[in-house]
Computed example of a mutant assay.
Amino acid sequence: MDIGFVTNVVFPFVKGGAEKRIHEIGIRLAAEGHDITVYGRHFWDGPQVMEYKGLTLYGVAPAEELYADERRSITEAIDFSTRLLPHLRRNVDDHNVVVASLFPYFPVLASKLTTLGTDTPLITTWHEVWLDYWDEYLDRLAPFGKGIERLTARTPHYPIAVSGVTADRLTKLGPTRDEIEVVPNGIDVDRIESTPPAADGFDVLYAGRLIEDKHVDWLLEAFDRVADAAPDATLGVIGDGPERDRLEKQAQTLEHADRVTMLGFLEEYDDVLAHMRAVDVFASPSTREGFGITFAEAMAADCTVIAAKHPESAASEVIGDAGFLASPTADDLAAVLERALSGERPNTEPTARAQRYDWDAIAAEAEQHYQCAINGNW
């Protein structure tokens, strides 16, 4: 196969889940002999078109700031999509399939324009479906976001969702469930298992963005409640975001504040993995997860995982019975956390569950679906 991936940012020059997925699948398919081109902004040092780990990186636009006031820049997305058009159009007949990273939507629409009148199918990867979350994210401009999301969903293409929860939400925008394939996100199991544990590890860990939907405030409250029953237990919180100041103030007011450490954002991924490898319990009571990659990583690190059971979170789908689910309240989170700190383990070994998310398995699954789109038997 000759595959063209479209993403305005390219891993590892910009680090995020969507671009990492393209990178990990791409390098594995390239190693199998497929031709892989990644179209993105020119964030790397070197020529506009260059080889990198078996991939051809194609810079269709110069590097540019992706965010404006902590929100993804609409003008950046439109600019990238406009610049993408002539480059992808020039090469589209060379590709058997184009796979476009969904967010921020406009590149998908541009990719569709380039494939019109060709035999090259377009696949999109849906990491999340926002629906009413646009009201919170864009406020008075929410109808614009909702309209673009709906237009993208109804543009003829082959959709892949990263979880069943995301696929079900996508059906609210137009596609039927049998039109959507599910290929989860992946992890490098060998890398996680071979990472040495941190020497200064914690007993309980959270890692992720510090935003309201993650509900780290519930975790802080729950830990404080059970700390007396687990007198030596400590909690580490890794991450940054708009909630950081508020959460740090909350942590300082806890009765057991001296056993809580706010580590902020860790630049090195291996440092995050080292902390996962050192802890007994990984807890993330997020109520909005299109997939939840940290759950899979924590299972590979042999943590007892605690997540929130919520209809807008794929956590239960990811961890199955290899972790524990709590109701989305501090009270129930505290009860489950106390059980986990006492040594209770889930029915299925977390490391066994994590194997299904290894990137080798995910790349093979993606390859199968790409070929189905090419053959017209999606």
Score class of each variant (00 low, 15 high):
G264V: 15
G46Q: 14
T82F: 12
W44G: 05
A326N: 10
P143D: 06
T261I: 12
L235E: 07
R244D: 04
V272A: 03
L57S: 03
V165G: 05
T287S: 14
A274L: 09
I3S: 04
V9R: 15
E255Y: 07
E221I: 06
A314R: 10
K214G: 00
A18W: 08
T152N: 00
S313F: 10
D240K: 03
P143M: 09
R41T: 06
A315E: 03
A340E: 05
E193H: 09
H127K: 05
A352N: 05
E24R: 09
S286W: 00
R41L: 03
T166F: 13
T120F: 03
V98D: 00
G174M: 12
R246D: 07
D93W: 03
V14F: 14
D79F: 14
L219Y: 13
D94W: 07
I362F: 09
Y357A: 11
A296T: 12
E136R: 10
T304Y: 02
T118M: 06
R288P: 00
E344H: 01
F202C: 01
N185Q: 03
L138W: 06
A352C: 02
K309P: 00
Y370M: 12
E297T: 01
L337N: 10
T75P: 00
R150E: 15
L266W: 10
W134M: 01
